[in-house]
Design a binder for these strands. Sequence first.
DNA 1: CAGTGGTCTAGACCACAAG
DNA 2: TTGTGGTCTAGACCACTGT
Lengths: 242, 242
Amino acid sequence: MADEGKPRYQTIANLLEQELALLEPGTQVASEHELAKRFGMNRLTAKAALEELERRYLVRRSKGRGTYVARRLPYVVSPGSSPSWSASVRTAGGSPSIATVSLTERPASQAIADKLKIDKGQRVFVLVRRRFIDDLIAGCTTSYLPGDLLPRFRSRLSDDASLHDVLAEHYGIEPVRTWAKVELRPAPADIAVHLELRGAPMVHRLSALLEDPHAQGRVVEYGETWLRPDAVDLIIEFKQSD
Amino acid sequence: MADEGKPRYQTIANLLEQELALLEPGTQVASEHELAKRFGMNRLTAKAALEELERRYLVRRSKGRGTYVARRLPYVVSPGSSPSWSASVRTAGGSPSIATVSLTERPASQAIADKLKIDKGQRVFVLVRRRFIDDLIAGCTTSYLPGDLLPRFRSRLSDDASLHDVLAEHYGIEPVRTWAKVELRPAPADIAVHLELRGAPMVHRLSALLEDPHAQGRVVEYGETWLRPDAVDLIIEFKQSD
DNA sequence: CAGTGGTCTAGACCACAAG
DNA sequence: TTGTGGTCTAGACCACTGT
């Protein structure tokens, strides 16, 4: 392994990484105390090894619960790619779920109006949702949608529905991502809480516009999504033409 | 500050973050020992505070040297954006530099030939360079360029030259980014060494194709770049049309 | 050489989650 | 109540960097 000159905790982390590869995602990993006993070392050294695995996005840890094998699913964002979270996650082999935090209706601010190509003051739905993979929190989204496009939206959107499905079934809208911007940023305090992150680690910030190709350039949604990089392997790809 | 219930090292980190904001990038920060003395706490707690700042990309630390105020410069990647590292860094207010690690010439593998739209076995230049911001390592790139487009390339490329400048001055080529793919990945061991990273933290992996709009779709360069996320705030943006 | 961060030990108390 | 990880202390030795 060429782990000769390396620190103890790195060697242990490499060893554990091999062992982890054989386990199912979600399996509980040996605790700090167990590791310390197993390798005859101090608990802080065992902790350092587990933290190393956390930095590699191979495990997730939480206080009182333990350390578990993580799964990092690819999530591709490209012009024209399907904007559906559920579909993307399922394609990658995970089981997606969504929970609506809030749905409100309000007049558009200038900034939101610009994004949605509507007039300031027109009614917009503001939808906040949390996204899960295998029942683990993976991200959260604030969506802005033009009210006039979506009559009876509130009654048609159930708490755990895919927005994409609701748009397709009830409104015949098959939106496509026409603009996106991605950045790795320190999580704002409130987002860190939403995503169950301690401290202020880095989080993907994805802003995107969805348009319906059949609706003469109407913007269907402007969304701001925060994604945990340990849950989602965000891949952004674009071509200039075609 | 609402730092009431928070751990000591977080409170200290928040306090230091405010102090850091007043300092020039590159300034040395108080050492672990100094911090421990100043706040009457253990060195490990001081260390935890500095590591928290490192996680926030606000400082860079290295063994034997110390802890220094970091600067994270925005680096925008979008279709048609200038592919020049030097220009991008300068625009963001940093001083860019480049060091060539190696320049070799070899027949194209199938994979590289596909990218460059040439035949397998045709001669390609393979150029490995390291990129710096304010003399701090920020990334490294392996570039593949078709040999037939670049006669006398070796003598025209100096060690510290901007590839973009050489292409423009000597070959009249003004290439544009036509395809790009970005992902946050664990740094492979050799890349981690190149980028002076300890452990195996996450690194941006940017693959891109450059084409010259005046040269009938000839691919000028295929590049694979690894970027330190603490040095570069990578922003990817695309629109579907125009 | 002196100063830096990197690692490690042997303790301790705590908050949190789950049964 | 038990076990988990989170925090903190008081030491120690080491490797690396600069002078």
